[in-house]
Amino acid sequence: MPVSIREVAQRAGVSVGTVSNVLNRPDEVSAESVDKVTRAIDELGYVRNDAARKLRAGISTTVGFVVLDGQNPFYNDVVRGAEDEATRHGIAILYGNTDEDHRREKLYLDLFEEQQVRGLLIAPYGDVTSRLQRLRSRGIATVLVDRFSGDGRFSSVSVDSVVGGRMAAEHLIQTGRRRIAFVGGPFDIRQVNDRLAGARVAAENAGDHIDLEVVATAAMTVDEGVAAGARIVSRPRREWPDALFAANDLLALGLLQSLVVDGRMLVPDDIAIIGFDDIAFAAAAAVPLSSIRQPSRMIGRTALRIVLEEATDPDSIARQTVFQPELVVRASTRAR
Rank of each mutant, 00 (worst) to 15 (best):
A52H: 02
A52V: 00
R53K: 14
R56S: 13
A57F: 05
G58M: 02
I59Y: 10
T61L: 07
T62W: 01
T62A: 04
T62M: 03
V63H: 06
V63T: 05
G64P: 08
G64V: 10
V66Y: 06
V67W: 05
D69F: 11
D69G: 09
D69H: 09
G70L: 02
Q71K: 13
N72I: 09
P73L: 03
P73R: 00
P73Q: 04
F74G: 05
F74P: 06
Y75F: 15
Y75H: 04
D77K: 08
V78S: 05
V78H: 04
R80D: 04
R80L: 09
R80Q: 09
G81I: 01
G81F: 01
E83S: 12
E83T: 11
A86F: 01
A86V: 03
R88A: 14
H89R: 15
I91G: 06
I91N: 06
A92R: 12
A92C: 11
I93Y: 10
L94W: 12
G96M: 05
T98W: 07
E100R: 07
D101V: 11
D101C: 13
D101E: 13
H102W: 11
R103N: 14
R103Y: 11
R103E: 15
E105K: 08
K106P: 05
L107E: 15
Y108F: 15
